[in-house]
Design a protein around this nucleic acid. Sequence first.
DNA 1: TATTTATTGATACTATAATTACATCATAAA
DNA 2: TTTATGATGTAATTATAGTATCAATAAATA
Lengths: 135, 135
Amino acid sequence: MNNYTNILRQHHLKATPQRLEIVNVLVSNGHITIEKLYEVLLKKFNSISLATIYKNINLMIENAFIQEVKIPNEKSVYELAKEAHSHVICRQCNTIEDIKLDLSQTTHLASQTSHFKIDKADLVLSGLCQKCQQL
Amino acid sequence: MNNYTNILRQHHLKATPQRLEIVNVLVSNGHITIEKLYEVLLKKFNSISLATIYKNINLMIENAFIQEVKIPNEKSVYELAKEAHSHVICRQCNTIEDIKLDLSQTTHLASQTSHFKIDKADLVLSGLCQKCQQL
DNA sequence: TATTTATTGATACTATAATTACATCATAAA
DNA sequence: TTTATGATGTAATTATAGTATCAATAAATA
């Protein structure tokens, strides 16, 4: 029983090979679209169904195991749930990286000016990654 | 010739009644989905076509006259293009407000840690608006 | 005000995204 | 190892989003 089996069970999800592979892909790729996830899983399970992907992604979201990340001008990607963080995306190659930034000052200031009680900050920074800057 | 006519012409768009109303709705509502925009325009033009909405929204985006805003867990909304700003959304009533925040420190820091050349920051803050806090 | 050119609305269509039903099969727990 | 429960794959289906065509019409300009 590998370690992803435990993670899945903790979220009340049976550890099927398909799910283990989804987790595996999320751990290694980090951020992925439904479409791409299907494509990748097809390599391992040549008869996997898109319905299975959708059913699992939805279940995992319900169980707060993964979360959707909306990217300006792009399709949504999914990532394993973890502590709050922001994202950096390269507009050239679409690489997405997590980045830990302290936004407490910003949200505090925003609370004051807007009179909203703010408890979440979704930040997506766009630009060029190191590689693409050199091209 | 009202003032929206000029704005449209400056963006090389003929000032049709439908377009003037789209601008009008964007100015007063601030942020709106395609769906809702269609709904609202139908009140004024009872035979307006959804195709007209799409054609205009796309044209206006191409002409950098309006822009799409992606909101976590919600449909995209459209707003008039203006100087960079962030958004605050109420998770209860879905009200969206613009907010001007200085993110230069944050993006500068992010550039250093990520080695990305960052030129854009999309920030969506979520919480409860003043009204919904009281309910 | 006549002419050119773009826009509109109607309709049909295409594309993409997501869900359902159900028989078969696998996992987890007894 | 057996059984109950839940997951999978297939296929059909529904939902949602967006585009193309084109005749009629309106806006801009000369």
